[in-house]
Design a protein around this nucleic acid. Sequence first.
DNA 1: TTTGCATACATACAGCCTGCCTGTTATGAA
DNA 2: TTCATAACAGGCAGGCTGTATGTATGCAAA
Lengths: 196, 196
Amino acid sequence: MQMTGQRQRQADRTAATRTKLIAAARDLFAEKGYAATSTPEVVAAAGVTRGALYHHFAEKLGLFRAVVEEEHALLAMTINAAAGGDDELGPIKALLQGGDAFLTAMQDPGRRRILLIDAPAVLGRAELDAIDARHGLRTLVEGLSAAIDAKAIRQLPLQPLAHLLGALFDRAALADAHALPDYRKAVRALIRGLKV
Amino acid sequence: MQMTGQRQRQADRTAATRTKLIAAARDLFAEKGYAATSTPEVVAAAGVTRGALYHHFAEKLGLFRAVVEEEHALLAMTINAAAGGDDELGPIKALLQGGDAFLTAMQDPGRRRILLIDAPAVLGRAELDAIDARHGLRTLVEGLSAAIDAKAIRQLPLQPLAHLLGALFDRAALADAHALPDYRKAVRALIRGLKV
DNA sequence: TTTGCATACATACAGCCTGCCTGTTATGAA
DNA sequence: TTCATAACAGGCAGGCTGTATGTATGCAAA
C-alpha cells in the first residue's frame, strides 16, 4: 500500500516549505525585527516565492505567529531538559532553578528580540499570553501552585502572581550579560521574599 | 522692543504645529497602534500637511518618540501629584503608594498601548530605558535607595532591582481592570518580601 | 491508465505608505 | 525695502503588502 507513502510526499512537501519559510523568517526577524523584515527578503532567504508564502500563511503576521509558536516550544523544551530533572528539590528551589534555566535559554539575542520585544507589540498582549499559557507560563503556574500547596510561599492569587513572576524573568532576560548576575540576585531575593 | 514678540510668533507657530501633530498622533497611536497608523492619517487629523510633519520630524519614528516623551512626562506629573505629598511615610509605604499611583495613572488604555506595548518594540529597549531613566524610573531608584539606606529593605543591586520592580508594575498595569486588585495584592506582597 | 479535482505553488497587479525633493509663502534681521 | 531663512505645500520614486489569476504537481476514482 503506497497510499501512505504518496500522501506523505504531499505532506512532506508542505512541511518542507513551511519549515524553510519559518527558519528563514526566524533568522531575519531575530536579526532585524518584524517591521524591518520584508516578505521578499524572507522568501529569498528561504529559496521559495511569495506565492508559496501566501499559500501557507494568510498574511505576514501569520508567519510571525508561527515563528513565535515554534520559538516558544523550543524554549519550553530547553528549559524542561535543563530543569525538569530534579523532582525532589523543594518548591522554592525548583522555582529558582527553573528561572535560572529560563535565563540561560534566553541568552540568544534573536530569541529575546522575537519573544520579548516584538511579539507583545505585533501579536498583542492577549494573544501572546494565550501562547505563553500553553508553554512556559503553565509550568510556572504549576510550580507556584505546588509551592503554595506545600505552604512554602504565601498564599496569593495564582494567575496574577505567575504573570508577575513571568514579567520579572522576562525583564531579567533582557539585561545586559554583564549585569545578569545582579539581576539574578534580585530576582532570587524577590522570590525568596514570598516565603511564608 | 518687539523682537521678543516677533520671535515669539515664530516660536508659537512652530509650537502650535508640533502640538497639533503630537496630539493627533497620540490619539491615533493610542487607538490603532504605531504600525497601523499612517502619516496621512495623522496630518489629516492634525489639519496640516505631510510637508509640515516632515519639516518638524525627520521620520515617522521621531513623531512617535515625541509622543512617548510627552506621555512619559504627563505620567510622571500625574504620579508626583498623587503620591508626592506625604514625605514622612516610611520608605516601603512610599513605594507602595507610588506604585498605586502608577497603576491608577496607567488605567488609560491608550497610554498603556503607547508606553507598554508599542514603545519597547518601536524604540527598542535601550532607548525606552533612557527615556524612562529620566522620568519614572528615577523616582523609583530614589525611593529604593532611600529604603535601602534606611535599612527598610534588603541590600540589593539598585539598578537591577529598580528595573525589575518597574517591569512588575508595568505588567500589573496591563492586567484587566477586574483582575487589578489581585495584581495589586501580589505586587505588594513581592515588595513587602524585600523587607530586611 | 486516464480523468478530474484539489493542493501547491508562480507571477503580475493594484493600492498604499514612507521619505525625499523641489517649489512657495511667511517671518525676521539689516 | 531687501534678503536670508524658517515653515510649510505638493509631487515623485521606490518598496511593500495582499490579492487575483494562471500553472504544475499530486492523487483518488473510474
